[in-house]
Design a protein around this nucleic acid. Sequence first.
DNA 1: AGCCTTTGACCAGCG
DNA 2: TCGCTGGTCAAAGGC
Length: 572
Amino acid sequence: MIEDWTLSNPSPRTFMSTFLSEEFGSRSSSGFLAGKENEGPAVETEKVDKVTKEIEGEASNDFLSESNWSGAHKSNSHGGLAERISASGFNVPKLNTARIGQEKMPSSSSDVRSPYLTIPPGLSPTSLLESPVFLSNSMADSKDATNAIMFKHSMPDSFMASDHALPVDDEQDGDRDLKGEPSSVAVGAPAKDGYNWRKYGQKQVKGSEYPRSYYKCTHPNCQVKKKVERSLEGHITEIIYKGTHNHPMPPPNRRSGVLLSHPFNDPEIDGSGQTGSQMNSDNKTMWTTRNMGNEEQDWQGDGLETTTSAHVTAECCDPSATTQQTPDIARLSSDAIDVSSTMSNEEDEDDRATHGSVSLGCDGEGDETESKRIISFSCFCRSYYKCTHPGCNVRKHVERAAHDLKSVITTYEGKHNHDVPAARNSNHPGSIPSGTISNTAAPHQPHGLLARVESTQGGLVRLEGHAPFSTFGLPGTQQLRPATSFSFAMSQPGFTNLAMTVSGPLAPMNVSVLPSVHSYLGHHMPVEGLMIPKGELKEEPMPESESRLPVPNGGPIYHQMMMNGVPLRPQL
DNA sequence: AGCCTTTGACCAGCG
DNA sequence: TCGCTGGTCAAAGGC
Ligand SMILES: [Zn+2]
């Protein structure tokens, strides 16, 4: 949907890379959690079977720390995690991610599910494309596991790579990523979350479909551990972090395979880096799951690097409840918290402060039903746009990706009931079919859209009126990037396909998308075959089965992430 | 040589 | 005490 609001200058790279770039590991708190009530569009992901986050011990984690979460309140989600946490005394949060794609979501669930698909700010496109899993709000409520929808895609790293990308860590994953063999990657490869991990054990846990791998941080004197469950396909179904790193994220040295720039690179993003997890002063161990990446694939190409996205859904439970909860329950609980991004340790304080908004779905009561909620995390202001076409109620909002200032997440709500207006920009004459989102580098103006940008934070840009995204460039942001545009198509049930277009020096990519909707509907069939030649936009046919996506509020929502240096800030 | 993964064995907690 | 389960150890092997 180029529609009126085609955005300009989305740099392809940023697009994907940034999305996920804010890793949990290194950066904390950008996570987003979608709550039942989350008004904002919820992102749905597929592929992540489940993610569990357990935090045991004190709540002193950065992850939960005010700085990290503070942003959340302001952001999109109401009843942010922070609030809930504070309210419930979130000392020992336990988060579980719902499984994605394995089970159908109860359509009948009484919970109010957001029809929207939300992409966590912290998530980079990569995650989405690569095999990231998106959790849908809908998921949040269902107790059955598997609320989450997975979004699986495979793309060249370049696709996801970000401009500012730090050294790519391809050492471990990179190679295989380059080769484009996700499956191989998945198995046994520790996720790159910016930290170095050594696998010290693997065991098939009862009640778990997949073997659980045990990792320890290789840093001397660091006791952080994590447990990762991966599907055969290499998708991470569950990640549990224990402890907090007592050291900064290691430099991205190839050997370590750490990718600083993109914590998400690895499916197993370490939350540790995340400000979120911290060592408890009392030495209590704390398990924290930061992100779920689905795919462990890292993509590289053209010197671009991408990482898999990680999507985290967590279930927050009362600390006490947490410990008491049975494993099964934890897993099954569909309410999840999505922690999409975390700031890298290296990040400046500002970022942290601004990022993170987290809403916990759980009330901390320990009650399954109560505790589960998906939280949407949004730390930045949003710009809201409305289609100016008479009678058309389609809206969209754009917000910066928490992990990367350069990245923008655009969410579409509703479907245009009219043809695409003549492109104002000659650059893309009719090149973009309706139903697709174009993020081409060519400067587009949001035709017919009224843009309103507000920032809740000092120093943020506040704008109103028609304005192309390009106008929002942040200082220091790389708006002028290699002319790459990214096109991504996501088919939504009942909606036109969502497409992202990437143009530029990117290699053709094959994207398979499993909208969370699928899982929502009980369809887990991935949509594949999205080949996006460089700069070529394709629209993927929407599976018929998906056409039934319940859209309570009316229109479907398209979520688009763009990596274009838009300095948007979170807005409520 | 160093680091990591694999994998069977061992240990601890719990009912 | 026994059995089950989850977590960890450590030897072996690979890169
Ligand atoms: Zn560590």
